[in-house]
Amino acid sequence: MKAIKDYLREMDLVSGSTGLLGMHVLYDLTAKGRHVRALFRNKNKISLVRGLFEFYDPENVEEKWSLIEWFECDILDVFQLEKAFEGISDVYHCAATVSFRRREFSSMITTNRYGTANMVNLSIDHNVRKFCHVSSTAAVGKSVRNQSKDVVETDKWEQNPDTTGYAVSKYLSEKEVWRGIEEGLNAVIVNPCVILGPGDWNESSLTIFRAIHKGLRFYPPGANAIVDVRDVSKRMLAIMDSEISSERFLIIGENITYKKLFDTIADALGKKKPTIRVNKLLMGISWRLAAFFSFITGKPTALTKQSTKSAFSVTRYSSEKIDNWIPTKYYNVKESVDNSVQFSFFFVKS
Protein backbone atom coordinates (compact mmCIF):
# COMPACT_ATOMS: atom_id res chain seq x y z
CA MET A 1 0.00 0.00 0.00
CA LYS A 2 2.81 2.44 0.85
CA ALA A 3 4.45 1.87 -2.54
CA ILE A 4 1.17 2.70 -4.31
CA LYS A 5 0.78 5.91 -2.32
CA ASP A 6 4.35 6.93 -3.08
CA TYR A 7 3.79 6.34 -6.78
CA LEU A 8 0.57 8.34 -6.83
CA ARG A 9 1.83 11.28 -4.77
CA GLU A 10 2.13 14.63 -6.51
CA MET A 11 5.70 15.27 -7.64
CA ASP A 12 7.52 18.06 -9.48
CA LEU A 13 10.25 17.52 -12.05
CA VAL A 14 13.33 19.75 -12.25
CA SER A 15 15.82 19.47 -15.11
CA GLY A 16 19.29 20.94 -14.69
CA SER A 17 18.92 20.37 -10.96
CA THR A 18 22.64 20.72 -10.13
CA GLY A 19 23.02 24.06 -11.91
CA LEU A 20 22.90 27.49 -10.29
CA LEU A 21 19.18 28.05 -10.88
CA GLY A 22 18.08 24.41 -10.76
CA MET A 23 19.42 23.77 -7.28
CA HIS A 24 17.71 26.90 -5.95
CA VAL A 25 14.43 25.75 -7.48
CA LEU A 26 15.00 22.41 -5.70
CA TYR A 27 15.58 24.22 -2.42
CA ASP A 28 12.50 26.42 -2.74
CA LEU A 29 10.24 23.53 -3.74
CA THR A 30 11.35 21.33 -0.84
CA ALA A 31 10.99 24.31 1.51
CA LYS A 32 7.30 24.22 0.53
CA GLY A 33 7.16 20.50 1.29
CA ARG A 34 7.01 19.47 -2.38
CA HIS A 35 8.32 16.10 -3.54
CA VAL A 36 10.78 16.61 -6.39
CA ARG A 37 12.36 14.36 -9.00
CA ALA A 38 15.71 15.97 -9.79
CA LEU A 39 17.33 15.20 -13.14
CA PHE A 40 21.12 15.17 -13.18
CA ARG A 41 23.97 13.98 -15.40
CA ASN A 42 27.00 14.34 -13.13
CA LYS A 43 26.55 12.80 -9.67
CA ASN A 44 29.68 14.58 -8.42
CA LYS A 45 27.76 17.87 -8.55
CA ILE A 46 25.12 16.68 -6.10
CA SER A 47 27.48 17.50 -3.22
CA LEU A 48 27.31 21.17 -4.25
CA VAL A 49 23.51 21.04 -4.00
CA ARG A 50 23.77 19.45 -0.57
CA GLY A 51 26.16 22.22 0.46
CA LEU A 52 23.64 24.83 -0.67
CA PHE A 53 20.92 23.25 1.49
CA GLU A 54 23.27 23.23 4.49
CA PHE A 55 24.26 26.84 3.82
CA TYR A 56 20.68 28.11 3.77
CA ASP A 57 19.05 25.93 6.43
CA PRO A 58 21.46 23.64 8.34
CA GLU A 59 18.84 22.60 10.90
CA ASN A 60 16.35 21.18 8.37
CA VAL A 61 18.62 19.72 5.71
CA GLU A 62 17.58 16.10 6.18
CA GLU A 63 13.88 16.93 6.08
CA LYS A 64 14.21 18.80 2.78
CA TRP A 65 16.72 16.36 1.30
CA SER A 66 14.36 13.43 1.91
CA LEU A 67 11.85 15.01 -0.47
CA ILE A 68 14.25 14.73 -3.43
CA GLU A 69 14.37 11.72 -5.74
CA TRP A 70 17.58 11.90 -7.75
CA PHE A 71 17.23 10.62 -11.32
CA GLU A 72 20.23 10.32 -13.63
CA CYS A 73 19.11 11.28 -17.12
CA ASP A 74 20.11 13.19 -20.24
CA ILE A 75 17.18 15.17 -21.66
CA LEU A 76 18.19 13.96 -25.14
CA ASP A 77 17.57 10.35 -24.06
CA VAL A 78 13.84 10.08 -24.74
CA PHE A 79 13.47 6.55 -23.42
CA GLN A 80 15.09 7.36 -20.08
CA LEU A 81 13.30 10.71 -19.90
CA GLU A 82 9.98 8.93 -20.38
CA LYS A 83 10.56 7.11 -17.08
CA ALA A 84 11.37 10.38 -15.34
CA PHE A 85 7.93 11.78 -16.20
CA GLU A 86 5.98 9.05 -14.41
CA GLY A 87 3.75 10.59 -11.73
CA ILE A 88 4.87 14.17 -12.47
CA SER A 89 2.60 17.17 -11.84
CA ASP A 90 4.67 20.29 -12.59
CA VAL A 91 7.83 20.68 -14.68
CA TYR A 92 10.62 23.23 -14.17
CA HIS A 93 12.90 23.05 -17.21
CA CYS A 94 16.19 24.66 -16.14
CA ALA A 95 18.64 22.50 -18.11
CA ALA A 96 20.60 24.20 -20.91
CA THR A 97 24.05 24.42 -22.43
CA VAL A 98 25.70 27.85 -22.34
CA SER A 99 28.59 28.48 -24.72
CA PHE A 100 29.87 31.22 -27.02
CA ARG A 101 32.31 28.97 -28.88
CA ARG A 102 31.57 28.30 -32.55
CA ARG A 103 32.74 24.70 -32.34
CA GLU A 104 30.04 23.99 -29.72
CA PHE A 105 27.19 25.60 -31.65
CA SER A 106 25.79 22.38 -33.09
CA SER A 107 25.81 20.48 -29.79
CA MET A 108 24.29 23.49 -28.00
CA ILE A 109 21.44 23.66 -30.53
CA THR A 110 20.86 19.94 -30.07
CA THR A 111 20.68 20.16 -26.28
CA ASN A 112 18.79 23.42 -25.95
CA ARG A 113 16.30 23.04 -28.79
CA TYR A 114 15.73 19.32 -29.11
CA GLY A 115 16.16 18.67 -25.40
CA THR A 116 13.42 21.23 -24.79
CA ALA A 117 11.29 19.61 -27.49
CA ASN A 118 11.59 16.30 -25.62
CA MET A 119 10.57 17.96 -22.35
CA VAL A 120 7.58 19.64 -24.03
CA ASN A 121 6.42 16.51 -25.84
CA LEU A 122 6.57 14.33 -22.74
CA SER A 123 4.80 17.01 -20.70
CA ILE A 124 1.94 16.88 -23.20
CA ASP A 125 1.95 13.08 -23.29
CA HIS A 126 1.84 12.84 -19.49
CA ASN A 127 -0.71 15.64 -19.11
CA VAL A 128 1.38 17.66 -16.65
CA ARG A 129 -0.45 20.41 -14.78
CA LYS A 130 1.99 23.19 -15.75
CA PHE A 131 5.37 23.68 -17.44
CA CYS A 132 7.91 26.45 -16.72
CA HIS A 133 10.64 26.99 -19.28
CA VAL A 134 13.79 28.93 -18.38
CA SER A 135 14.88 30.95 -21.38
CA SER A 136 17.15 34.02 -21.40
CA THR A 137 17.28 37.71 -22.24
CA ALA A 138 19.41 36.49 -25.18
CA ALA A 139 16.19 35.29 -26.81
CA VAL A 140 14.49 38.70 -26.58
CA GLY A 141 14.64 41.11 -29.54
CA LYS A 142 17.08 44.04 -29.49
CA SER A 143 18.11 44.70 -33.07
CA VAL A 144 15.16 46.80 -34.21
CA ARG A 145 14.14 48.35 -30.92
CA ASN A 146 14.31 52.04 -30.03
CA GLN A 147 17.73 52.35 -28.39
CA SER A 148 16.39 54.89 -25.90
CA LYS A 149 13.98 52.44 -24.30
CA ASP A 150 14.50 49.31 -22.25
CA VAL A 151 14.05 45.90 -23.87
CA VAL A 152 10.62 44.36 -23.16
CA GLU A 153 9.05 40.96 -23.82
CA THR A 154 7.30 42.03 -27.03
CA ASP A 155 10.41 43.35 -28.81
CA LYS A 156 10.81 41.41 -32.05
CA TRP A 157 13.72 38.98 -32.20
CA GLU A 158 15.78 39.16 -35.39
CA GLN A 159 19.03 37.40 -36.16
CA ASN A 160 21.94 39.59 -37.27
CA PRO A 161 25.74 39.16 -37.63
CA ASP A 162 26.22 39.88 -33.91
CA THR A 163 23.64 37.33 -32.72
CA THR A 164 25.32 34.66 -30.60
CA GLY A 165 24.84 30.96 -31.12
CA TYR A 166 23.52 30.80 -27.57
CA ALA A 167 20.84 33.36 -28.41
CA VAL A 168 19.80 31.33 -31.45
CA SER A 169 19.56 28.16 -29.34
CA LYS A 170 17.38 29.84 -26.70
CA TYR A 171 15.14 31.43 -29.33
CA LEU A 172 14.60 28.03 -30.95
CA SER A 173 13.97 26.51 -27.51
CA GLU A 174 11.22 29.02 -26.88
CA LYS A 175 9.63 28.17 -30.22
CA GLU A 176 9.32 24.56 -29.02
CA VAL A 177 7.47 25.77 -25.92
CA TRP A 178 5.12 28.00 -27.93
CA ARG A 179 4.47 25.04 -30.22
CA GLY A 180 3.61 23.00 -27.12
CA ILE A 181 1.23 25.72 -25.94
CA GLU A 182 -0.56 25.57 -29.29
CA GLU A 183 -0.92 21.83 -28.74
CA GLY A 184 -2.58 22.37 -25.35
CA LEU A 185 0.36 22.59 -22.93
CA ASN A 186 -0.21 24.88 -19.93
CA ALA A 187 3.15 26.68 -19.93
CA VAL A 188 5.00 29.87 -19.04
CA ILE A 189 8.41 31.18 -20.06
CA VAL A 190 10.84 33.20 -17.95
CA ASN A 191 13.72 35.20 -19.42
CA PRO A 192 16.22 36.02 -16.68
CA CYS A 193 19.25 38.20 -17.35
CA VAL A 194 22.74 37.37 -15.99
CA ILE A 195 22.10 35.33 -12.85
CA LEU A 196 24.27 35.71 -9.74
CA GLY A 197 24.27 33.57 -6.61
CA PRO A 198 25.84 30.63 -4.75
CA GLY A 199 27.16 28.05 -7.17
CA ASP A 200 30.13 26.68 -9.07
CA TRP A 201 32.59 29.44 -10.03
CA ASN A 202 33.71 27.35 -13.00
CA GLU A 203 30.36 27.65 -14.76
CA SER A 204 28.51 30.29 -16.79
CA SER A 205 28.12 33.76 -15.28
CA LEU A 206 29.92 32.86 -12.05
CA THR A 207 33.31 32.53 -13.79
CA ILE A 208 33.77 36.27 -13.25
CA PHE A 209 34.11 35.62 -9.50
CA ARG A 210 37.05 33.30 -10.15
CA ALA A 211 38.67 35.78 -12.55
CA ILE A 212 38.45 38.68 -10.08
CA HIS A 213 39.63 36.45 -7.24
CA LYS A 214 42.75 35.74 -9.30
CA GLY A 215 43.41 39.47 -9.72
CA LEU A 216 41.61 40.65 -12.86
CA ARG A 217 42.94 44.10 -13.80
CA PHE A 218 40.69 44.92 -16.76
CA TYR A 219 37.04 45.87 -17.13
CA PRO A 220 34.92 46.38 -20.27
CA PRO A 221 32.96 49.60 -20.86
CA GLY A 222 29.60 47.94 -21.49
CA ALA A 223 26.56 47.33 -19.33
CA ASN A 224 24.00 44.58 -18.86
CA ALA A 225 21.44 43.41 -16.33
CA ILE A 226 21.89 41.08 -13.36
CA VAL A 227 19.46 39.29 -11.09
CA ASP A 228 19.80 37.25 -7.90
CA VAL A 229 19.15 33.55 -8.40
CA ARG A 230 16.79 33.58 -5.39
CA ASP A 231 14.64 36.19 -7.13
CA VAL A 232 14.39 34.08 -10.28
CA SER A 233 13.51 30.88 -8.43
CA LYS A 234 10.88 32.47 -6.20
CA ARG A 235 9.19 34.18 -9.12
CA MET A 236 9.13 30.92 -11.06
CA LEU A 237 7.35 29.20 -8.18
CA ALA A 238 4.94 32.12 -7.80
CA ILE A 239 4.06 31.99 -11.51
CA MET A 240 3.58 28.23 -11.37
CA ASP A 241 1.26 28.56 -8.36
CA SER A 242 -0.83 31.22 -10.12
CA GLU A 243 -3.40 31.10 -12.91
CA ILE A 244 -0.89 32.75 -15.26
CA SER A 245 -0.54 30.80 -18.49
CA SER A 246 0.90 31.26 -22.01
CA GLU A 247 2.92 34.27 -20.89
CA ARG A 248 6.58 35.28 -21.11
CA PHE A 249 8.39 37.28 -18.43
CA LEU A 250 11.71 39.09 -18.29
CA ILE A 251 13.19 38.79 -14.79
CA ILE A 252 15.57 41.68 -14.19
CA GLY A 253 17.06 42.70 -10.87
CA GLU A 254 19.25 45.64 -11.81
CA ASN A 255 20.67 47.24 -14.96
CA ILE A 256 24.34 47.78 -14.20
CA THR A 257 27.70 48.64 -15.78
CA TYR A 258 30.36 45.96 -15.82
CA LYS A 259 32.62 48.34 -13.92
CA LYS A 260 30.19 48.57 -10.99
CA LEU A 261 29.62 44.80 -11.02
CA PHE A 262 33.35 44.00 -11.08
CA ASP A 263 34.05 46.53 -8.30
CA THR A 264 31.31 45.06 -6.11
CA ILE A 265 32.72 41.54 -6.54
CA ALA A 266 36.26 42.74 -5.84
CA ASP A 267 35.15 44.45 -2.62
CA ALA A 268 33.36 41.30 -1.45
CA LEU A 269 36.45 39.20 -2.14
CA GLY A 270 38.86 41.69 -0.59
CA LYS A 271 40.68 42.09 -3.90
CA LYS A 272 41.85 45.12 -5.85
CA LYS A 273 39.28 46.57 -8.20
CA PRO A 274 39.96 46.35 -11.93
CA THR A 275 41.34 49.72 -13.06
CA ILE A 276 42.17 49.34 -16.75
CA ARG A 277 39.32 50.12 -19.13
CA VAL A 278 39.81 48.02 -22.23
CA ASN A 279 39.29 49.39 -25.71
CA LYS A 280 38.14 47.50 -28.80
CA LEU A 281 41.65 47.11 -30.18
CA LEU A 282 42.95 45.48 -27.01
CA MET A 283 39.87 43.29 -26.72
CA GLY A 284 40.17 42.24 -30.37
CA ILE A 285 43.78 41.19 -29.87
CA SER A 286 42.84 39.37 -26.65
CA TRP A 287 40.14 37.14 -28.13
CA ARG A 288 42.36 36.23 -31.07
CA LEU A 289 45.22 35.24 -28.76
CA ALA A 290 42.80 33.32 -26.53
CA ALA A 291 41.44 31.44 -29.56
CA PHE A 292 44.99 30.63 -30.73
CA PHE A 293 46.09 29.22 -27.38
CA SER A 294 42.82 27.34 -27.04
CA PHE A 295 43.57 25.67 -30.40
CA ILE A 296 47.14 24.83 -29.34
CA THR A 297 46.33 23.53 -25.84
CA GLY A 298 42.90 22.06 -26.55
CA LYS A 299 41.52 23.92 -23.52
CA PRO A 300 38.33 25.97 -23.97
CA THR A 301 38.36 29.72 -23.46
CA ALA A 302 35.58 31.92 -22.17
CA LEU A 303 36.93 34.82 -24.26
CA THR A 304 35.49 34.67 -27.78
CA LYS A 305 34.71 37.16 -30.54
CA GLN A 306 31.02 37.11 -29.63
CA SER A 307 31.59 37.50 -25.90
CA THR A 308 33.96 40.43 -26.42
CA LYS A 309 31.38 42.22 -28.58
CA SER A 310 28.81 41.93 -25.82
CA ALA A 311 31.32 43.41 -23.37
CA PHE A 312 31.13 46.70 -25.28
CA SER A 313 27.37 46.85 -25.73
CA VAL A 314 25.02 48.68 -23.38
CA THR A 315 21.66 46.97 -23.09
CA ARG A 316 18.93 47.73 -20.59
CA TYR A 317 15.96 45.50 -19.80
CA SER A 318 12.59 46.14 -18.19
CA SER A 319 11.00 43.92 -15.54
CA GLU A 320 7.79 45.97 -15.50
CA LYS A 321 5.57 43.13 -16.71
CA ILE A 322 6.45 40.61 -13.99
CA ASP A 323 6.67 43.39 -11.38
CA ASN A 324 3.03 44.22 -12.10
CA TRP A 325 2.03 40.55 -11.74
CA ILE A 326 4.32 39.78 -8.79
CA PRO A 327 5.27 43.01 -6.97
CA THR A 328 8.11 41.65 -4.83
CA LYS A 329 11.34 43.38 -3.87
CA TYR A 330 14.59 42.22 -5.51
CA TYR A 331 17.97 41.63 -3.90
CA ASN A 332 20.46 44.33 -4.91
CA VAL A 333 23.81 43.56 -6.54
CA LYS A 334 25.77 43.78 -3.27
CA GLU A 335 23.43 41.34 -1.54
CA SER A 336 23.72 38.93 -4.47
CA VAL A 337 27.50 39.12 -4.62
CA ASP A 338 27.89 38.79 -0.85
CA ASN A 339 25.65 35.72 -0.82
CA SER A 340 27.72 34.06 -3.53
CA VAL A 341 31.03 34.81 -1.83
CA GLN A 342 29.81 33.69 1.58
CA PHE A 343 28.65 30.38 0.13
CA SER A 344 31.99 29.77 -1.60
CA PHE A 345 33.86 30.21 1.70
CA PHE A 346 31.28 28.06 3.52
CA PHE A 347 31.45 25.26 0.94
CA VAL A 348 35.26 25.16 0.95
CA LYS A 349 35.37 24.95 4.76
CA SER A 350 32.57 22.35 5.06
Rank of each mutant, 00 (worst) to 15 (best):
K2R: 12
K2C: 05
K2G: 11
D6R: 12
L8P: 03
M11G: 01
D12S: 14
V14Y: 06
G16I: 07
G16S: 12
G16D: 13
T18M: 11
H24F: 05
H24K: 13
L26A: 08
Y27E: 05
T30F: 09
V36S: 10
V36E: 12
A38K: 13
A38S: 15
R41S: 06
K45M: 05
S47H: 11
S47G: 10
S47F: 04
S47N: 14
S47L: 14
F53L: 03
F55E: 09
F55V: 15
P58W: 00
P58V: 02
V61G: 14
E62M: 07
K64A: 09
S66R: 05
L67Q: 10
I68L: 15
E69S: 03
I75N: 05
I75V: 14
L76M: 12
Q80E: 15
L81W: 05
L81K: 12
A84P: 04
E86G: 09
E86K: 14
Y92E: 09
H93Y: 06
C94A: 11
V98E: 06
R101Q: 09
R102A: 08
E104Y: 11
F105Q: 13
R113T: 01
A117Q: 10
S123D: 04
D125H: 06
N127S: 06
R129W: 00
F131K: 01
C132F: 08
S135N: 02
S135M: 05
T137W: 00
V152H: 00
T154S: 01
K156D: 11
W157P: 13
T163D: 08
Y166N: 07
Y166I: 13
A167H: 02
S169A: 11
L172I: 03
S173Y: 14
R179A: 13
G180C: 07
I181F: 10
I181W: 11
E182I: 01
E183S: 02
I189D: 00
V190A: 03
V190D: 03
C193F: 02
G197N: 00
P198L: 07
G199D: 14
D200C: 09
S204H: 04
L206N: 13
I208Y: 00
G215K: 12
P220F: 05
P221W: 00
G222C: 01
G222F: 00
A223K: 07
D228A: 11
V229Y: 11
R230W: 02
R230P: 01
D231F: 14
V232W: 13
K234N: 14
M236A: 01
A238Q: 10
M240I: 14
E243G: 04
L250P: 00
N255R: 08
T257E: 07
Y258Q: 13
K259V: 09
D263T: 00
A266W: 12
L269G: 07
K271G: 06
K272R: 02
P274T: 07
I276G: 08
V278W: 14
V278T: 15
V278S: 15
L282C: 05
L282S: 08
M283Y: 06
R288T: 03
L289M: 12
G298A: 10
K299I: 02
T301S: 15
A302L: 04
L303I: 15
S310E: 10
S310T: 08
R316Q: 09
Y317D: 05
S318C: 09
K321T: 01
I322V: 09
T328G: 01
T328Q: 04
K329I: 02
Y331V: 00
N332H: 07
V333I: 15
E335L: 05
E335C: 04
N339P: 00
N339Q: 00
F345V: 12
F347E: 07
K349E: 14
